[in-house]
Amino acid sequence: MSPDLPSPDRPDLPIAYEPLPYEVRLDLRERAQIDLVVIHCTELPDLAMARRFGEEVLYEGSQTGNCGHFYIDRDGSVHQYASIDRIAHHVRGHNARAIGVELVNRGRYPDWLAAHHQAMDQPYTDAQVDALVALLRWLSLEVPSLRQIAGHEDLDTTTVPATDDPDVLVPRKRDPGPRFPWQQVLDAITLHRVP
């Protein structure tokens, strides 16, 4: 069945399958090794810019870039940029076992690493949260080995010198950030958050 059409397991969750140009160059993996979903925010103003960033080739050897598997726009629409059978580059050290889900949210854009710009104050929309819950429930059926969920900030705790003050260290990753409704999501799914 085409990924952009509803199926009996996900009647209310149409997914637009829009593979990145380099998707076939991402390494394949067995579904049984996938046990983790990582929640991100794009830290960009809109889905179009997230797509442009995702299409950028950053790794010369593989001719691939950084991307999640799924992107959820502010209207709740779900877009799939990479097959879950492929290893996408979205979280250091965990890519082989993880599915990356990106929520469109400006985060710290455009001064991601500036000490004066670390607030992440844009709320997630109800439509995004509803779509995320539906996607996570479907993924739990599609990938029975899934057990855990984490935020990007839970797994990448690296600090770096701030771009506007190198004497100040700031988190390299803060997503999905303080406005993400963790309890609401966890109450609606069977996955357990990584401690």
Rank of each mutant, 00 (worst) to 15 (best):
L113C: 04
P144F: 14
G65M: 11
V104H: 01
I87F: 00
A127V: 03
S62E: 15
D46P: 02
M49K: 15
I39Y: 06
D27N: 07
L155G: 01
R108F: 08
L155H: 01
I72M: 00
S83T: 09
S62N: 12
I39P: 01
Y71N: 10
P19V: 13
L58M: 12
P8Q: 12
L5P: 00
A82E: 02
H117M: 02
L113H: 14
Y81Q: 11
S77V: 09
P144W: 08
R10Y: 04
D175Q: 15
D46I: 08
L132K: 05
E30N: 09
W182S: 02
V37I: 12
T42H: 00
H40K: 06
A50R: 08
D154V: 01
L139R: 10
D121H: 08
I34W: 09
P45S: 06
A48T: 14
I39Q: 02
Q80L: 13
H116T: 14
S7P: 05
P19W: 13
V78R: 11
L139Y: 11
E102Q: 10
D165A: 11
N66T: 13
V160D: 08
A127K: 08
L186D: 02
L155F: 11
K173R: 12
L44D: 12
G107W: 04
Q80M: 15
D73L: 07
Q33W: 02
T159A: 09
N105W: 02
L28S: 14
M120A: 07
A131P: 00
G65H: 07
V170N: 03
S2T: 12
A115E: 10
V57G: 07
D175A: 13
Q183S: 09
L135Q: 04
N105R: 03
L135N: 09
I99A: 08
L146Y: 00
E55G: 03
P3D: 06
T190G: 14
A162I: 11
I84Q: 07
G93F: 00
A48G: 11
E55A: 15
Q33E: 10
L186E: 09
D75T: 07
L146M: 05
V57Y: 02
V57T: 10
G54E: 07
P123C: 01
L13G: 00
L28K: 13
D187V: 05
C41T: 12
L20T: 03
T159M: 15
